[in-house]
Amino acid sequence: MGYTRRQALKAGGSLGLFSALVALGLVKPGDAWAQAWNKGVFETKSVADALKALGASAPTMTADVIVTAPDIAENGAMVNVAAVSKLPKTQQIAYLIEKNPNTVTAVFDIPPGTLPEVQTRVKMGQTSNVMVLVKADGKYYAAQKEVKVTVGGCGG
């Protein structure tokens, strides 16, 4: 079969063919995750919707997920947020910003061998809770921190 994955994706378009290809072993699910950007997840407008879209309806609040962000961000256009998970088998880390136009900001995939520690800069429109959602061993955990924003970074 001379099908490359790209051609398959292009030709497919339908989920049915795609999952068939996955089943055949032509396409690795891991690759698909790395490629397909999930529009539904990133267009959610509330924490509840975002959790539903990510498949985590009721995450357990835990102290094993550490969110490091400033208490007061002078400039909402650049807020440094770091997340560290102490939970074993952490598979995924997601950033959710409650009061941004779209709640889900980032989803990080942590393969085995990679430490569950990420740091990046986000934009915040206004003072809001920053929630870090961690998927570990198939279960969801979360921790959050409030960041006060004095100048918004989302324009308008």
């Binding site: 891991g30 995750w33 790395a34 950007w37 999930n38 997840v41 990133f42 256009a77 650049m78 807020v79 440094n80 770091a82 910003i97 941004n100 136009p101 779209n102 889900v104 900001t105 980032a106 989803v107 990080f108 995939d109 942590i110 393969p111 061998g113 990679t114 430490l115 520690e117 990420v118 740091q119 990046t120 800069r121 986000v122 934009k123 915040m124 970074g153 989302c154």
Partner: peptide, 25 residues
Amino acid sequence: GNTVFSAHWGPAIAKNPFLQFKFKG
């Protein structure tokens, strides 16, 4: 050749994005 990290981002990541991660091996 192994993927050690991947991320999906929304538009709320700051301009000129900074990213830090750690892996073993």
